[in-house]
Design a protein around this nucleic acid. Structure first.
Lengths: 74, 74, 74, 74
DNA sequence: TCAGATAAAATCGCGC
DNA sequence: GCGCGATTTTATCTGA
């Protein structure tokens, strides 16, 4: 058998497995959101909370980039 | 202690863990694409192949037929 | 007055005007798509048709051939 | 002649004209960036400046959304 | 040419 | 079911 075809098959199947895993996690997240909603927590607000908790990292990176940019601009 | 706050904390932390896992998989997929590219497989084509394999057969036919129809009408 | 600052101002304002024009066209395109949908044409297919007509003929053939090759190899 | 085909043709050609206009503007913006670069202004910085000048609007919207969200969450 | 950053487009999920 | 807003994915661009 052609080894190149074999290699392609291996790659595609690996990617497909990983896409499945990813999708499974996405589904789990949705499921948790749904449960939380059933307990009175709004998904919309939960998402906002997650975003806010994640923000400090992003925000710090953004600030560092801006500082570097303007240092370079001078 | 307020059980509702505790419950909320549990939910948020679970979601954050899952988001991390998801991100790890996304990074892995990128890594594999990169490797595949190094072996001569075009990521762009690989993505198209994955999309085609994922799509229901009849849906794919429907799209192709419609595109052909529109093209012919022009 | 500092001529360099003046020049910078001119450049920035020109760019801002062009960004606005660009956005106006983007909005118009969306509007036409919406109208077309109302007449029974699927925006998704219309976009594919536009992409196909825009793509150089040989590039299109190259992509289709590669996809077919990969699919066949699996 | 089939009026539907005619209508489709009209729509597609309108869209193609608008895409051309859009592309022309995109090209103009690039051209100006290039000129500015020739005069010593870095495109990277210019883009940052444009983003900053545009931000107040976006930022205000973001804040208003946050306020509304948390009011709703209470 | 390539990786990393930016912007554009497509998709998804909510609310009406 | 449809439009709208948010998220995710794809394509483009710039600098190394």
């Amino acid at each position: 058998m052609d080894m190149t075809n074999n290699r392609l098959k291996t790659i595609v199947e690996r990617l497909e497995r990983m896409e499945e895993e990813k999708q499974a996690i996405v589904d789990d997240i949705k499921e948790i959101m749904k449960e939380a909603k059933g307990e009175g927590f709004e998904p919309k607000i939960l998402k906002k909370v997650l975003a806010l908790r994640k923000m400090p990292h992003d925000e710090r990176e953004r600030l560092e980039l801006l500082v570097a940019t303007y240092m370079a601009a001078l």
